[in-house]
Nucleic acid binder design. Structure first.
Length: 632
RNA sequence: GCCUCGGUGGCUCAGCCUGGCAGAGCGAGAGAUUUGUAAUCUCUAGGUCGAGGGUUCAAAUCCCUCCCGGGGCUCCA
């Protein structure tokens, strides 16, 4: 229920024209006037229909409070649909209004009610004293323990606002240290960089196609939209969960190798916590908010909150620095505007490895930045995304650049290709330097994967200190690092890459370590089944057997559609020789499968080589295809 | 929030313009077939055509209202 209360000298209305939902009224009600009254403009909402009695009771009480304050007992109920964008059905609205009228009369108010569903002209004179204009929202939410609050005015963080104000100076920096204006740069041979620059600077983003990965994520039974949730919250089928889990484990392990300690922190935080509130205003993202009891909470959009609060309470010596912590956030939540959400590229709930490094001074921060920059290149490459697949953006303040010019040029030398530079005169955000690796997809859209930032203000905000060798308390600099970027986004990038490969005549596939099925054994006929099962038992990796009663051709086609890297066909020949005939996907061309006769041992060696150095998980689906349900 | 497209069997969609018995493919179930590298054949089951209202002898189809979803814009760590 939405109500707008106006203490008025008088209110006067006249019906003009009925709408299709108009209530039938006597002529006497077609005009009305009330002097010295509280006019209550009122909209009955959809949510009131769940408990009309509650809405009426609360509204009546609210009206009573205000009439007491303004000392009147005359009320004009005036239906006013425009107060809400989520109206109740006309039928229940009329019912609610009538009951409210009755209730107020019982409470000895003098009540008039303007008819529902008519176009009316009205004149009102508002008294203009401080209490003469009030609005109230009445919802049952207070009694439930978890109600997502629909903010009337969306909270927009200061960072989002300042981002709009920030002036960016764009450049291209080449490996030999030339800093050029984008217009002066020759993009020949740098198609992806050109797309990226267009995307960033010229905001050229219109696309009229569904991104290819959306179809692929469904067809490969990885992930899908979940209409039962909020948009941007995906469901992951067993195969998708497997791929995601492998990526998660891999990235966590790489962070651990660099000395990061894995921690776990809550996903929701008190919106009115003084420190957190200030940080919210420095982070350009929108939050989900949640009400629990009387507390307003927000869902984290990164792991910073929990880790910084933990850092605050820690005793940290200079000997502990650089101090690294990592958390895999499942999930980070960002309430992106609904239209921004696309497949696995941009989500409202996503999984992000988030590592923070406390450094004793700027020199150490810069050194760590450099190390993590290299780590990110390595992580993406191991995931299956090479330097050719993404473009580098480095962003910093003018001051930082003036003091660290050689360092930045060196970053460009490492990737050995021109990068996009964004320069700000002042520091608008919490960092002085950041880079991201941006994946350029089949529709020329750019999305950030890995990123590292040097944060110069959150140590102070959160009161994070360390004791230096001379016994004095100091503030560390903090690096934020996501070695891979969001896990879902990595999957998106791999799928988009596979799609672009297939457009180029390269057979699409996932890296072997991520393929849900690594080897599929297909018996030529039923009588080879026993041998097939025996072979499957001896093979390494995620093996399955196509034991369905289908033709050989069908089974081979299905294996190809699932992008199975190794398809081992076994028939009379193989039973006789004791080996397998393997279709090797990575060596095949469209319509030209490459079949290699090999022993089980040889196949095992190939697979072991493909997956060496990567995490392994068993396939959650049954080994026999005939026992697997379909998900899409 | 705005623009746009859509909602028809489990899935993908046709039918709608021009109103007249609700269709196909995939998938599922049954049967036949025992196959050597991109879909074997036959049969069967399965639908309040998103919801509500209106027009009409008759509505999946036309009109109105609403709901839900996709894509785009805005936005973007």
């Amino acid at each position: 229920m939405q109500i707008l209360l106006i203490h008025s000298d008088y209110i006067e209305y006249e019906t003009k024209k009925s709408t299709p939902v108009a209530e039938k009224i006597e002529d006497s009600l077609k005009k009305g006037r009330m002097d010295e009254a509280l006019t209550v403009f009122i909209a009955v909402e959809k949510s009131d229909e769940d408990s009309i009695e509650y809405a009426i009771k609360q509204t009546a009480e609210e009206i009573k409070k205000v009439t007491d304050q303004v000392k009147t007992n005359r009320v004009m109920l005036y239906p006013y649909a425009h107060l809400s964008s989520s109206l109740a059905s006309p039928k229940s609205a009329v019912e609610t209004l009538k009951k409210l009228e009755e209730r107020l009369k019982e409470a000895s108010f003098e009540v008039k009610r303007a008819p529902f569903g008519w176009y009316k002209s009205f004149t009102i004179k508002c008294k203009g004293h401080p209490l003469s204009e009030l609005s109230r929202t009445i919802r049952q939410g207070e009694q439930k323990c978890l109600t997502v609050v629909r903010e009337k005015e969306e909270m927009v963080s200061e960072a989002l606002k300042s981002e709009a104000k920030a002036t960016s100076y764009w450049h291209i920096l080449t490996p030999d240290g030339q800093l050029l204006k984008p217009d002066d740069f020759d993009f020949t041979g740098y198609d992806n960089l050109k797309k990226f620059v267009n995307y960033e600077i010229h905001k050229s983003r219109a696309v009229d196609k569904i991104p290819p990965h959306v179809e692929l994520m469904r067809r490969l039974e990885l992930a899908d939209y979940e209409p039962g949730s909020d948009s941007g919250n995906m469901r992951f089928y067993p195969k998708g969960r497997l791929v995601k889990s492998l990526l998660e484990n891999y990235v966590l392990d790489e962070a651990a190798k660099k000395g990061a300690m894995e921690v776990e922190t809550p996903i929701m935080y008190d919106m009115n916590h003084p420190t957190l509130k200030k940080y919210l205003d420095r982070f350009p993202a929108r939050q989900y908010s949640i009400e629990a009891d009387k507390k307003m909470l927000f869902l984290r959009f990164a792991a910073c909150f929990g880790q910084f609060l933990m850092n605050h309470d820690m005793t940290i010596s200079y000997r502990n620095l650089p101090l690294r912590m990592v958390e895999l956030t499942r999930y980070s939540f960002r309430k992106e505007q609904s239209g921004e959400l696309v497949g696995l590229r941009r989500l409202r709930a996503f999984t992000m490895p988030d590592m923070h490094t406390l450094c004793k001074d700027m020199d150490e921060a810069v050194a760590q930045f450099n190390e993590q920059y290299n780590m990110c290149i390595n992580v993406l490459s191991m995931i299956g995304l090479s330097l050719d697949d993404y473009e580098v953006a480095i962003r910093f303040t003018r001051d930082f650049y003036n003091e660290n010019r050689d360092f930045i040029v060196n970053l460009v030398k490492i990737v050995n290709k021109p990068v996009l530079i964004e320069l700000w005169d002042q520091r608008f955000f919490y960092f002085v330097l950041k880079f991201e690796f941006n994946y350029i997809d089949a529709l020329s859209k750019a999305s950030a994967l890995s990123t590292v930032q040097i944060d110069v203000e959150n140590a102070q905000r959160y009161g994070i200190k360390y004791i230096d060798s001379d016994g004095s308390e100091k503030m560390p600099f903090i690096l934020h690092c996501s070695p891979s970027g969001a896990i879902e986004r990595c999957i998106y990038a791999l799928l988009e890459k596979a799609y672009m490969n297939s457009e180029k005549g390269i057979v699409p596939m996932l890296p072997v370590w991520l393929s849900p099925t690594q080897v599929r054994v297909i018996p030529v006929t039923e009588k080879h089944m026993e041998y097939a099962q025996k072979v499957a038992g001896k093979l390494n990796g995620r093996v399955d057997v196509d034991d369905r009663e289908e033709t050989l051709g069908k089974k081979i086609r299905d294996a190809a559609k699932e992008w199975v890297p190794y398809v081992a066909v076994v028939g009379d020949e193989e039973v006789k020789s004791g080996g397998v005939t393997v279709t090797v996907r990575s060596e095949s061309h469209p319509n030209k499968p490459v079949n290699v006769k090999m022993t089980v041992l040889e196949l095992n060696e190939r697979i072991s080589k493909d997956i060496a150095g990567y995490p392994f998980k068993r396939n959650p689906l049954s080994m026999n295809l005939s026992a697997r349900p379909r998900f899409v």
